[in-house]
């Protein structure tokens, strides 16, 4: 990683307030291709607000966002998606009663070619199923055996895998993961961490929001520390220990 490289996603001076509550107070972020940037911070530090602004779920009051150096405005999650930014929300944003393939394509269903698709708006179910299978296989998620089973029949880790697969299959620039291991056991967490490393190997930028310091120190290239709505500094797992990182996070030390 060199600083001369253009960040694939960058934000400058992001401000977001909710009534009189300040969520973000002038935050800068840079995410480069092929790196894992972790965002850590205490509750209420503005982590979620930050990623929501970066993914179009919230519109910042002030500040600019650039993609590959070009300024962009995200008014809806679709805008961020169109720019190649995919998000795995903490709530996973999967429809439990729909099957795995339908969930992978939820909100961007593909239609059949020809008049069946253009006039009758018919879904290309088989095509989507086939490509969903490929996406799941390419990521090495063998835990999902049947692409036609409803998501609610899956375990927490498998659901997480579906959400990550969706993001990885469509994200061309950035995959944002909000607390991806929070609800998972040790084994399932390791699977998700391995998946994150695979996304980085594929050249995507990964933005990882996590409370779990060992996980952050395990996979992150750089760590953005968020404190009281501001950036308290960017550190690396090499430059700082976990304890030092937590100290910055809580304000006991400066970066």
């Amino acid at each position: 990683m060199t600083t001369t490289q253009t960040p694939v996603l960058a934000a400058r001076g992001l401000v977001k307030t909710f009534g009189r509550v300040v969520g973000l107070d002038g935050v800068d972020v840079d995410v480069y291709a092929g790196e894992v940037l972790a965002v850590i911070g205490d509750n209420g530090a503005g982590k979620s607000t930050l990623i929501k602004c970066l993914t179009g779920a919230l519109i910042p009051d002030a500040g600019t966002i650039t993609c590959d150096g070009r300024e962009v405005t995200f008014r809806r999650p679709q805008d961020a998606r169109a720019a190649g930014i995919e998000t795995v929300y903490q709530t996973l944003a999967v429809a439990p009663a729909l099957d795995v393939a339908s969930n992978l394509y939820l909100g961007r269903e593909e239609r059949r070619p020809g008049p069946l698709g253009s006039v009758f708006r018919m879904l290309d179910k088989q095509g989507m199923r086939r490509r969903a299978e490929e996406a799941v296989r390419d990521l090495g998620i063998s835990t999902i055996q049947n692409i036609t089973q409803p998501v609610e029949s899956l375990s927490g880790g498998q659901r997480q895998a579906v959400a990550v697969a969706r993001a990885a299959a469509f994200g061309s620039r950035i995959v944002v993961l909000d607390e991806p291991t929070a609800a998972l056991g040790v084994k399932e967490s390791n699977q998700v961490l391995a998946l994150i490393e695979r996304l980085r190997e594929n050249g995507l930028g990964v933005l990882l929001i996590s409370h779990n310091m060992p996980h952050v120190w395990q996979v992150a290239d750089r760590i953005h520390v968020q404190r009281l709505g501001r950036s308290a500094g960017v550190i690396t797992p090499q430059s700082h220990t976990m304890a030092e990182g937590v100290a910055i996070m809580t304000g006991a030390a400066a970066a």
Partner: peptide, 21 residues
């Protein structure tokens, strides 16, 4: 149709549907 699938998704979990675009 996609519309049909969206009807199900909205009823299933409207927040998830919104986040899915």
């Amino acid at each position: 149709t996609a519309w049909g699938r969206h009807v199900y998704a909205v009823g299933d979990d409207s927040d998830a549907a919104r986040l899915a675009g």
